[in-house]
Design a protein around this nucleic acid. Structure first.
Lengths: 350, 350
DNA sequence: TTGTAGGCGTTATCAG
DNA sequence: CTGATAACGCCTACAA
C-alpha cells in the first residue's frame, strides 16, 4: 500500500560511486564495460531489486515492445485460438499484446488502429471486420512506419504492402465440396459469408471449381451469402424452400455450420442422410455435435504464431542498422488446411 | 514509409511564440489559461496534427492508462465474452487493455502479473488459474500500489484486499440442482471442477443444499472432481459404472456439460429421458446442442464490464487528492444468474 | 495568465 | 573503459 519509489539507475550509480552511463551500459550488457564493474552493478541491481523503467526506455528508443492485435470478435473460438498463438510467440520475443476488438464494426476498427498508433505500438496484427472496404486506416499505420500483418481476413490489394498469414481457402473449399460429392451428394449448396470478405470469395472459387471438376453445373440459387452466424438459419430455410432443395451444404465457417446443424435438427431433417453438412474452421467443438461436424481445419493458433513471427521479423528489419534502409520483402504465408471427417457428411453405408 | 517526426508541444510553442508550459496547459485544458491562447493552441495543434506522446506523459504522471487482464483461457467463450465486456468499458474510460493468458498454468500466471507490474499497468483484472494456491504475486501487485480486481475465479481470503465480481455460485448451483429434482430426477450427480477453485466449492455447496432441501441424501460417489473439460468424459464414465448410476448430472460448467452430452450420446444414453444434464455458464452455444443444454447463465460480458468499472473506481480513488489517503473500500459485486431451460433436463410428458 | 527551470528514468554522443 | 551532458516529450512548482 505504501508508495515506495522504485530504484533507478541513478540510485545504483550513487551507491557505487560511478556514473549513470556506466550503470546503464552494464545493465544492458553493452560491449564496452569492464567486467568487474558490470558484475558490481548487476549485483547491486539484484540486491536493490532494480527494475528498468520501460517508459523511459521507450521514450528515448521509440520502441514500446507493444503489439496491437485487432480482431472482429473475441468470443469466436477461432480468434481465441489465434490470439493464444499470437500471445505465446510475442511473449517469447519479449513483446506485449494490446487488444482491440471491433465487433465487426468498421468504425471501431478505425478507432482501434488509431488508438494503437497513438499508443506507439511497434506493430499491428489484424483480421479485418466484415465491413472493411476502406483501407485508409491501414495505410496510415504504414505512413507512421508501423508494420502491419494481416491474418485470415486479409485484403488482397494490400498483399504487397503488408505481410499476410492465411490458409489456402480456395483449396480448402475445393476439398470440402469434393468431399461431399465423393460421398454421394449431388446438389451441393454453399452458404457463404459477407461478399466483400476475401475469404468468402476464395471459398466460393474453390466450391465452384470442385463442382466443375466433377461436372456438376453451378446453380446460382445454391449459393447464398449470409451475415455470418446471425442469419445462417434463414439462409438454410431459403435453401430448403427451393423447388429442388440441395442435399448438402458447405458452410463458410463452423459457427454458421453449427447453426445449420441445429436448424435442420429442429426441423427434423436428418443429417447426414437427407442433407450433408461441412463446415470450415475446425473448431474442436464440432466434434461434440450430433452428428459431429465435418470441417476444414485451419491451424488457428499456428496462424497467430506465424503472424507474430512475420511481424517481429519486419520490426527487427527496420531497427537493424544494416537493413533498415532496404525495403522489407513482405511475404504471404499460406498454411495448409486439413479435412476433418465427422459424421455430418458421411451417410451410413447402404 | 518515411519517418517524419511527430509534432511536439515545443513545435507548437515555437510557432506561436509562447512557452511550452502554456501549450501544455492549453492542451489539457487546465483552468489557468487565457481562452484565446487556448483556442490558438488548439487550432494549431489540430492543423499540425499534434498527438500527445503518451510515453512522455506517463513517464511523469506515472499513469499509463494500461490495464492488465489475465485469464486462464482465451479460447473458452466465457472468457471471450468477459474480455469483450472489459474492453468495452475500459475503452469508454480511455484505458487500453494488455492481455495475458495463463493456459491454466500457475507459473505463467505469476509471469503475467510480473510482466504487468514491470510494465506499470494502472490496474489488473484477473481470473486465476486452476492451480493458483499461492497469492504472493497478487500481494506484490498490492505492494506496488496497483489495484487488482478479481472476477469469476476469485479467492475468498483476498476478498477484503481486492474488489471482486462474481455470481452467486451457491445460489446458481442450488437452482440447477433443484431444477433437476423438480423435473423428476432422483439421483443427482455433480461433476465438479478442481477442488481448490472457490467456484467449485460454492457450487458444491449449492448442490448439497438443494439435495438437503428436498430430502435427498448426499452420496459421496455422486460427487466427482474433474480437471475441467479434459476428463469430463472419464468422470461421466465413472458415474455410469456405479452400481446405481445417477439419473441426472449437474456439471461445473458448460464446456464440461458439452463433453458429457457428447459422451452420453456416443454411448446411446438418452438425454433427457435416461439422464438429465444441466450446465453452468450459459454459453449461447448450448442452445445449438441436441438436446439443447439447460444451464445457469452467468452474465459474462457484464461481469467483465463491472470488473472494469470497479477497477477504474479504485484507480480514480488513489489519484484523487481528496481521497488518495483514505483507504479504498473494496466491494464484491454479486451478479444474478438465470436458469436457461433447454431440453437436456426436461423429460417429455408421459 | 504566462514563463523559467527542473525533473521523470533512460539512452546516446562525445570527450577524456 | 568511463563520465559529463544533452536529449526523449511532457508536466509542474515557482516566479514573474
Amino acid at each position: 500500500m505504501k508508495k515506495k519509489r522504485n530504484t533507478t539507475i541513478k540510485d545504483l550509480a550513487r551507491r557505487l560511486d560511478i556514473s549513470v552511463s556506466t550503470v546503464s551500459r552494464a545493465l544492458r550488457d553493452a560491449p564496452d564495460v569492464n567486467y568487474e564493474t558490470k558484475q558490481q552493478v548487476l549485483a547491486l541491481a539484484e540486491q536493490l531489486n532494480y527494475k528498468r523503467n520501460m517508459l523511459a526506455t521507450s521514450l528515448v528508443s521509440k520502441r514500446t515492445y507493444n503489439i496491437g492485435v485487432i480482431v472482429p470478435e473475441l468470443s469466436v473460438p477461432f480468434f481465441g485460438y489465434a490470439i493464444s498463438g499470437i500471445q505465446q510467440t510475442l511473449y517469447e520475443y519479449g513483446y506485449k499484446m494490446l487488444i482491440g476488438h471491433t465487433s465487426e464494426q468498421f468504425k471501431l476498427e478505425q478507432d482501434s488502429v488509431q488508438m494503437m498508433i497513438d499508443n506507439q505500438v511497434d506493430g499491428i496484427i489484424i483480421s479485418v471486420s466484415k465491413d472493411t472496404e476502406d483501407y485508409q486506416h491501414l495505410h496510415q499505420a504504414k505512413e507512421e512506419d508501423i508494420p502491419v500483418v494481416m491474418f485470415d481476413r486479409v485484403i488482397p490489394e494490400l498483399q504487397q504492402v503488408f505481410s499476410n498469414v492465411i490458409v489456402d481457402d480456395k483449396d480448402g473449399a475445393f476439398n470440402a465440396t469434393a468431399h461431399l460429392i465423393e460421398h454421394g451428394y449431388k446438389r451441393i449448396a454453399h452458404i457463404s459469408g459477407p461478399k466483400n470478405l476475401y475469404i468468402s470469395q476464395k471459398r466460393i472459387e474453390g466450391y465452384k471449381e470442385a463442382l466443375e471438376m466433377y461436372n456438376i453445373g453451378f446453380q446460382s440459387e445454391y449459393l447464398i451469402h449470409c451475415n455470418l452466424r446471425v442469419d445462417a438459419a434463414t439462409a438454410t430455410e431459403q435453401l430448403l424452400r427451393l423447388p429442388e432443395p440441395p442435399d448438402a451444404i458447405f458452410a463458410i465457417n463452423d459457427p454458421v455450420a453449427f447453426e445449420i446443424l441445429h436448424y435442420l435438427n429442429e426441423l427434423g431433417v436428418k443429417v447426414p442422410e437427407e442433407i450433408g453438412v461441412v463446415g470450415y474452421t475446425g473448431d474442436p467443438m464440432g466434434r461434440l455435435f450430433n452428428p459431429s461436424l465435418t470441417s476444414i481445419r485451419q491451424p488457428s493458433a499456428m496462424m497467430g504464431s506465424k503472424a507474430a513471427e512475420l511481424l517481429i521479423k519486419e520490426i527487427n528489419h527496420k531497427h537493424n542498422p544494416a537493413t533498415k534502409n532496404l525495403p522489407f520483402e513482405h511475404s504471404t504465408i499460406i498454411l495448409p488446411t486439413e479435412l476433418i471427417t465427422g459424421r455430418s457428411s458421411v451417410k451410413k453405408r447402404l
